[in-house]
Amino acid sequence: MLRYILKRFLTMIVTIWIIVTITFVLMISIPGSPLNEERGTSESVQRNLESYYNLDQPYHIQYILYLKSIVTLDFGPSIKQPNQTVNDLLGQGFPISFELGMVTILVALLSGVTLGIIAALKHNGFIDYMAMSVAVLGISIPNFVLSTLLIQQLAVNLNLLPPATWASPLHMVLPVAALATGPMAIIARLTRSTMLEVLTQDYIKMARAKGLSPWKIVIKHALKNALMPVITIIGTLLAGILTGTFVIEKIFAIPGMGRYFVESINQRDYPVIMGTTVFYSVFLVVMLFLVDIIYGLLDPRIKLHKKEGE
């Protein structure tokens, strides 16, 4: 188990290093200097930037100093927001985005798994077809379409829920619904198919031959095995949700990091774009790592098999 964790950890470090290097290379390859010229950068900002990026140094020194600042979680200043650093922006925006993301993944997991299990247990029945139709629609409708639809119908036309901002739990309903539908559909489809496969396994037949009740068989014997593959895709889903927050926060005017990020893209605020990208990438890679560890802890077989990749 320790070897497994160590191996995963090293992979994670390499991944992070590659991401940071890519950002650095892209940064210095931006045509002209991104940090001055007619971008209306004030002089104080200019000085901050130069000291952060060490523009007077040769590239390899710049690279090493950049790596160092990333390790110390210092992402540098912003061009467009005077006196704000990327860290300041992250400090304001990220908690909100994090909350949105976590509520979304929880909602998606709970509803997706439930839907998938019910569909599998009622295999080829009416409920199965309904659940899977909903799921196919869920993965087919982009979240920006769904959110405008929700705002127009539930908030504007029916006036049931607040259409925007992030003030109360009630405000969370629409953005979370818009963001969670896609992942929920993916989880439901995966849960259903793994559940169906697990239910044909010999050990399920064996459990039935022991005279256990169907309920007990599902809970004790099928569920854990069926949910293992679901755990492995949580990392990927988180990445999708996180990028989804960019869109959702823009549409619902939620003051999270995603909205700052989109604004920084539109204003070409390079340090913010770079810093946020690195921060989010590292965040996701760490999450992926944690998910893998949890998987390893839950599956007794991992301790023996050190096979990776697949």
Binding site: D202, M206, L212, N225
Partner: peptide
């Protein structure tokens, strides 16, 4: 399981791995 029990062909798959 009480009066009638059953054994399956493949012991590699008849036991729940978890």
């Amino acid at each position: 399981g009480v009066d009638i029990s059953m054994i399956f062909q493949d012991p590699m798959t008849a036991l729940n791995p978890t």
